[in-house]
Amino acid sequence: MKSPLQYRILPLGDHALCIELGEIIDASINQQCIALFHQLKELAIPFIKDIIPAYASVTVVYDVAAIRKEHPSAYGFMKEKLEAMLLRIDTDQPLSHRKIEIPVCYDLSLGIDLQEMSQEKNIAVEEIIRIHTNKTYRVFMIGFLPGFAYMGSVDESIITARRAQPRTTVAAGSVGIAGEQTGIYPLDSPGGWNIIGQTPLKLFDAKRKQPVLLEAGDEIQFVAIDINEFNNYNLG
């Protein structure tokens, strides 16, 4: 017998609610959130406008006016409906997740914070690169920008706090570290993460049918490429 899912439902304003499965960053709680997200999506529940999985929660945005045509409380209706579904949902089911390799050029011209990190931590640049590419990362969630993947967790030795002064522009494709998380900027954007390299892949492209490359639950392996491979990547 599986144990019942532990959760609480909280209103998020008057048109959304949050199903909270935990309060910490934890791969197994996150796995439950992603399973819940996929199953809710599959059920295609009427009146739901958006489902947003995060580290340890799933937020549901719903159409208040449409529900209120038939029910006295949209929040009450949605909460009850979700509670009934949560009883049946099996979030422990192993999910087939995608394994994705992401080429990253860690050249100092692109990994503009590598040298500073190296000095601060007294770890050679080559060693930081080895450590960053030595394990796979889980995409915990997508947020902040279209297609920005929050991945973790990096090895303890390269955990680095956000920069005190965020940059006004970080180039699209930049790979960064913030605390124990690693991430990739999908677009040119202001940002405070420590930049250690850049991928030639387009994490976001509005013209693609699937504009966003990564999804919550993906398993990511960074692969180091040199500057020539980086420069030629999108030519062939």
Binding site: L12, G13, D14, H15, A16, C18, E20, E23, I24, I25, I52, A54, Y55, A56, S57, V58, T59, V61, M141, G143, Y150
Partner: peptide
């Protein structure tokens, strides 16, 4: 003093 982790947010929050 608790640290929050990121969750979904919405218009009006």
């Amino acid at each position: 003093e608790n640290q929050l982790i990121s969750t979904g947010i919405t218009k009006g929050t």
